[in-house]
Simulated scan of single mutants.
Amino acid sequence: MTESIKPGNAVENREVPDTGRRNLLKLTGVGVAAIGVASFFSSSNAKAQNMTQEWDKVFPQSENVDHEKVTFKNRYGITLSGDLYLPKDRAHNRLPAIVVSGPFGAVKEQSSGLYAQTMAERGFVTLAFDPSYTGESGGEPRNVASPDTSTEDFMAGVDYLGLHNSVDRERIGVIGICGWGGMALSAVAVDKRVKAVVASTMYDMTRVMSKGYNDSVTLEQRTQTLEQLSRQRWEDAANGSPAYQPPYNELKGGEAQFLVDYHDYYMTPRGYHKRAVNSGNAWTQTTPLPFMNLPILTYIAEISPRPVLFIHGENAHSRYFSETAYAAAREPKELMIIPGASHVDLYDQMDKIPFDKLTSFFNQHLAA
């Protein structure tokens, strides 16, 4: 049995969300719930939120890595907040670098930061960042997303690393986790500066929002969802602010195993973080709209001749996303299936995440 985080349950001095707002989100129609649990924060402008300086990650800090909080702007002028990790023994060398983000609705203090710090221990300069409108990054309203902005955020990370004096700008790679695996592939198809990309336990967010899990949504269900979301725009416009979805990962019993797995990561001491969209908070109700008509992997074949590595768990409910994307990609490509692993195992389980493979992949393809 896992320990859920409840009000009054102190976990590493982190704040706890109000459980009065945590209900199960119904998996109906297009499955608005498919985009994940979410968060409701106060409004802000395009500037970054007040960034914490203390170590507030869900993983321990490495003694072999230098860490600093950084900010940088994307093409839309939104200030993004990131954690920069640098190998301590870098001297004055210009090193290969990796931009990391994900999962969809997570923050850099969770899985992406773990990936970034671990790869920095292995000799890479790495940048884990909060996407626009979430975490410590800027943008308003809070907790909204679009595939275009998310793709741009990755490219803005490449901008930042390419100007850093510890980075060889001709040796930059990308890692996208979960929903940001699809965003990573979309970004790299466009951004020819990136030399190699990894999608770990990936989701195609446009596919799951528009078609539901396993493409099960009917045209009638899709139309009904779009009717509801379209009319919600009038409500939001009249109110001058967006309405938010009810979060869905407080378990009531009888949920699908993947929802139990998400809860086990985001709502227990294992991975809970107060700023995470997925840790008992909420997206705007209309967040799915831009995902409904924009298949982000249309041009995945154009990543070639640069290499792409897909990593997925054998038992992951989302495995079909990587298998479909792998089939559509061109060589050089590789699909690595981790025996016995679930979707969420690849968020943080050090014995399941194939860091040796990630290291050899980037050492080979980001070689000087």
Results as ranks from 00 to 15, higher is better:
2 T>K: 11
3 E>D: 11
5 I>V: 11
5 I>A: 04
5 I>R: 00
6 K>A: 05
6 K>Q: 06
6 K>P: 00
7 P>Y: 05
10 A>L: 09
11 V>Q: 05
12 E>Q: 12
14 R>H: 13
14 R>N: 08
14 R>M: 12
14 R>K: 14
15 E>R: 09
15 E>I: 05
16 V>P: 02
16 V>I: 12
17 P>I: 05
17 P>A: 06
19 T>R: 12
21 R>F: 15
21 R>Q: 14
21 R>A: 14
23 N>S: 13
24 L>Q: 11
24 L>N: 07
24 L>A: 10
24 L>P: 03
25 L>D: 05
25 L>M: 12
27 L>N: 10
27 L>H: 09
28 T>Y: 11
28 T>R: 11
29 G>A: 06
29 G>R: 00
29 G>C: 01
30 V>S: 13
30 V>P: 00
30 V>T: 13
30 V>K: 09
31 G>R: 00
32 V>R: 04
32 V>T: 03
33 A>F: 05
33 A>H: 02
33 A>K: 01
34 A>G: 05
34 A>V: 03
34 A>E: 04
36 G>S: 07
36 G>L: 07
37 V>K: 03
37 V>A: 12
38 A>Q: 14
39 S>A: 13
39 S>C: 07
39 S>I: 03
40 F>I: 05
42 S>N: 14
42 S>K: 12
42 S>T: 10
43 S>C: 07
44 S>M: 11
46 A>E: 08
46 A>K: 15
47 K>E: 12
47 K>L: 08
47 K>C: 02
47 K>N: 14
49 Q>H: 15
52 T>E: 08
53 Q>W: 08
53 Q>C: 05
54 E>G: 04
54 E>I: 04
55 W>Q: 06
56 D>L: 15
56 D>W: 10
56 D>M: 08
57 K>H: 14
57 K>R: 13
58 V>P: 01
59 F>E: 00
59 F>S: 04
60 P>D: 12
63 E>D: 11
64 N>C: 04
64 N>S: 10
65 V>F: 02
66 D>T: 07
66 D>I: 04
67 H>E: 04
67 H>Y: 11
67 H>A: 05
68 E>N: 08
69 K>Y: 08
70 V>T: 04
71 T>G: 09
72 F>Y: 08
73 K>D: 06
75 R>W: 08
77 G>Y: 07
79 T>C: 10
79 T>V: 10
80 L>P: 00
81 S>R: 02
81 S>T: 00
82 G>E: 01
84 L>S: 03
84 L>Y: 00
87 P>C: 05
90 R>D: 08
91 A>Y: 14
91 A>C: 14
92 H>R: 09
92 H>V: 09
93 N>P: 01
94 R>F: 13
94 R>D: 14
96 P>T: 02
97 A>Y: 01
97 A>S: 07
97 A>F: 00
99 V>P: 01
99 V>Y: 02
99 V>C: 05
99 V>F: 07
99 V>T: 03
101 S>Q: 15
